[in-house]
Amino acid sequence: MNSLLPIALVLIASTAYGIWYQRTRGRVVVKGGKKKAGLITAQMIGAELGPRVTVVQFSSAFCTPCRATRALISDVTAGMDDVKYVEIDAEEQLELVRTLDIRSTPTTLFVDRKGNEVGRAMGAPKRAQVLSAIDAIR
């Protein structure tokens, strides 16, 4: 029975991680006081910032939820004239990925008109989470 111990350990550890994973993916985390990366500029993301909000999504090829996230944010921001949506291939922008400390895809940043990162979501966010993150920025 000794040989069942590794299985038990793996299943317990991965279940704990899996529960944490499902709870945290997509949640928009509001950035605290410390601003390590500084302002996000038009030059960094290769596009002008939106008049009120810029939503910046980092994607990669080996990422199933990136497609769903793209479809969701495109849909949510359609008709919002003061919101701009930019998708960046993380693989092509490793310098920027390091600067902004992007660790997984999709990672979505919610940026105000000055270029401050106000919030970020790792993993696919839900519609309500995207809407409230955009609404929270003035």
């Binding site: 290769g46 596009a47 939106g50 994607s59 090829a61 793209r70 495109s74 921001t77 359609a78 008709g79 919002m80 004239d81 919101v83 701009k84 949506y85 930019v86 998708e87 960046i88 291939d89 092509e92 922008q93």
Partner: peptide, 14 residues
């Protein structure tokens, strides 16, 4: 929405 047709994101899409 001000859709940005970023060259990189276009590559990703199509």
């Amino acid at each position: 929405m001000v859709q940005d047709t970023n060259a990189l994101s276009q590559k990703l899409n199509t």
